[in-house]
Write a protein that binds this DNA or RNA. Structure first.
Length: 259
DNA sequence: ATGGCAGGTACGACCTGA
């Protein structure tokens, strides 16, 4: 099973790029983040024509997550949109579904804005809620995969200038500790099963030619529970789409699982 | 210390991202 995750920074703007990615990679399922549309505004017909069914948890202007599910491979069952205690006004940042034996969770973790800000507190709280919900809803002895834009870089080798980011948002100690607590639910970072090098990134700021200069962060992740991690034969960041015209600032991450 | 680029909203200037 080929699983991908991609923060597209608007599905309407990135529709053709996502279609090109589907045509090239033929993933079985893709977790999208920052679709920035309500469910009814998602360009579903174009993806259906390409053989993929969108399963959407949308929101106007900000956030929004979705799966694209290859019709001839998988069907989404037991779809979950948001945390069980989310109110009607909640930000659309989580969608989960069962695909056969596999439970797949797709998240757009809050950015946090600035250490010490209200949004930063919201981020840390959201991470704690995620861990608590994982405890309630899933069993780490089963195949569970968590994908998405985590908005946290966990190690120095995932940051182009660790000293500049030290104690700043995306790389602060409380964020890393909250991330570690989620990992301890029972996850392994699929990417680090297959790559040890520093300097492999999934996001580059649009400004200051950061991509051309090779200055990025690895904040988009595919984490797997023990049985899913044991089945992971490859995990790679696809840098090419970041070179395309009008790119997302994030690159897709792709994992192959022998499930 | 700040803004730098990009998308959305709504059509002018601001909010958010990371």
């Amino acid at each position: 099973m080929k699983i991908a995750t991609w923060n597209v920074n608007s599905i309407r703007t990135r529709k053709d790029q996502v279609l090109a990615f589907l045509a090239e990679e033929a993933p079985d399922v893709v977790g999208l983040q920052e679709i920035k549309v309500t469910d009814d505004q998602f360009p579903a017909a174009a993806f259906q024509e390409a053989g993929y069914t969108p399963v959407v948890h949308g929101q106007k202007t900000y956030n929004g997550v979705a799966f694209l599910v290859r019709n001839d491979a998988l069907t989404a069952e037991e779809v979950v949109r948001g945390f069980p205690d989310d109110g009607d006004e909640a930000q659309a940042r989580l969608i989960a579904a069962r695909f056969g034996r596999l439970r797949l969770v797709n998240i757009y973790l809050p950015n946090g804005s600035e250490v010490g800000s209200e949004k930063y507190a919201y981020k840390l709280d959201w991470m704690e809620r995620l861990r608590n919900w994982l405890d309630e809803a899933f069993d780490p002895a089963e195949p569970v995969v968590l994908v998405g834009d985590f908005n946290v870089a966990t190690e120095d080798r995932d940051v182009y200038d660790p000293e500049a980011f030290r104690d700043r948002v995306l790389f602060s100690e409380p964020e890393k500790a909250a991330m570690e607590r989620i990992r301890q639910w029972g996850f392994t970072d699929c990417f680090r099963q297959h790559h040890d090098e520093a300097g492999l990134y999934s996001w580059w700021d649009y400004r200051m030619n950061m991509f051309r200069r090779g200055n990025g962060l690895r904040i988009d992740h595919i984490w797997a529970s023990e049985p899913a991690a044991a089945a992971c034969t490859a995990c790679d960041i696809h840098v090419e789409p970041r070179r395309w015209e009008r790119p997302s600032d994030h690159a897709p991450v792709v994992a192959e699982l022998d499930l």
